[in-house]
Nucleic acid binder design. Structure first.
Lengths: 215, 215
DNA sequence: AGGAGAAAATGATCTTGATCATAATTGATC
DNA sequence: GATCAATTATGATCAAGATCATTTTCTCCT
């Protein structure tokens, strides 16, 4: 009896898991229908079939629900983006394949994406959830960099993570310009990102005019 | 009589201006003492000597108080940074002189700066206040770029604003890594920024060591 | 099985940002 | 100066996120 309970995790554990699943499903559905700010915690509780106080035993605050619903999507997009990137040859095309998947995802509901990205960029308590995801994401981009270096497409004298930082900066900038400040459209963000990535590859410094510096 | 009133803007106008000044002063003092989130709108109203409902006749919401208090600081920092930049010769040093002033300002109260920067990056209703400031700031950086191009320090074949975008991206990234996600210290942010700016100048693309065939 | 103790759930309650009907103030007009 | 419309101020009130004392559920031990 106790063994089964341990294997199954115990009734208590099982109930908790089920509740969390219900909460996630309720939050996802309501966020999709009404958006993040417009859905109240009470609505989520009602839909999930729990008391209003119970919700905050599972998430520290309402914003953590964003991560909860985003996590599975993020993994999927990330996986799709990664394999799409592997199918590209050009380095910038690889990056755009990866970043572009997230952009496409955000474009499906920009208002919700705005809330999401704001919390991602300015998260309060390091929800280990997103922390881990961010690290994985960073490691993967660093890996793309390392591979590009290995095949001679990029300078090999730089730490991949340093380069990944520079690349992320451009991604974050255009995402924020699109979703955050509303300065550019989705297409504007994609074009801007692509152009600044190219610029990052080519560099800004004036070089002595010699033969052969390809453009 | 009416002329004096017109010159002074009328009693009504004068009262409004004074109230706004009192609100700004109250908000500034309380934010400095307790931080943004910990100070309540009611406290600000009490200190400013106005009713609780009156506050929201002057600002759309509490977050707009951040802009209200930041505006004057921002102009000062911006002016100081600009003149400091002009005293530098190296382009990256110029940028660091400008960006570094803001970093130093944020470092005086990182928790408050975090709230501020979040609202700056993800502002809701384009408070024309900050919109204008952002444009001025961007224009100035673009001007630094144009001057650097003119003296041959930068490639001259690029639109200054495109280049300024790329530079801002790095600034925003490290600010956000420091204040937003808490991944690096202030020093880490400054070092990271300087290094990625250098990287932005040099470029990432592998170049033939000799005049040889460039791909 | 039964009961003690721990863990989890609940909804009343608190806090605080924002709203709104009502009241006070201002300025034009006679 | 009195009247009246328009503007501005006010605090009661609302809405919603979060908390907390109380109740319910589960687990383990005899």
């Amino acid at each position: 009896m106790s063994e089964v309970a341990e294997i199954a995790g115990g009734l208590r554990e099982r109930n908790k898991r089920e509740k969390l699943t219900r909460i996630r499903a309720a939050a996802r559905a309501l966020f999709a229908k009404r958006g993040f700010e417009a859905t109240t915690a009470r609505e989520i509780c009602e839909r999930a079939g729990i008391g209003t106080g119970t919700l905050f035993l599972y998430v520290r605050d309402k914003r953590e629900l964003l991560f909860l619903t985003f996590e599975e999507d993020a993994r999927r997009i990330f996986a799709e983006g990664s394999s799409a990137a592997m199918r590209e040859r050009d380095f910038v095309a690889q990056l755009m394949a990866l970043f572009g998947r997230f952009i496409a995802y955000y474009a499906r509901d920009p208002a919700h994406a705005k809330a999401l990205v704001r919390e991602l960029f300015f998260r309060e308590h390091d929800s280990s959830l997103m922390g881990r995801l961010t690290l994985e994401f960073g490691a993967h981009v660093a890996d793309l960099v390392a591979k590009a270096q290995a095949r001679g497409a990029l300078r090999a004298d730089l730490a991949p993570m340093l380069v990944a930082n520079a690349l992320f900066a451009h991604y974050g900038y255009w995402i924020q310009g699109w979703l955050g400040a509303g300065l550019v459209s989705r297409e504007g963000a994609e074009d801007g990102l692509r152009r600044t990535l190219e610029l990052q590859l080519d560099g800004l410094r004036a070089r002595p005019k010699k033969k052969g510096t390809a453009r």
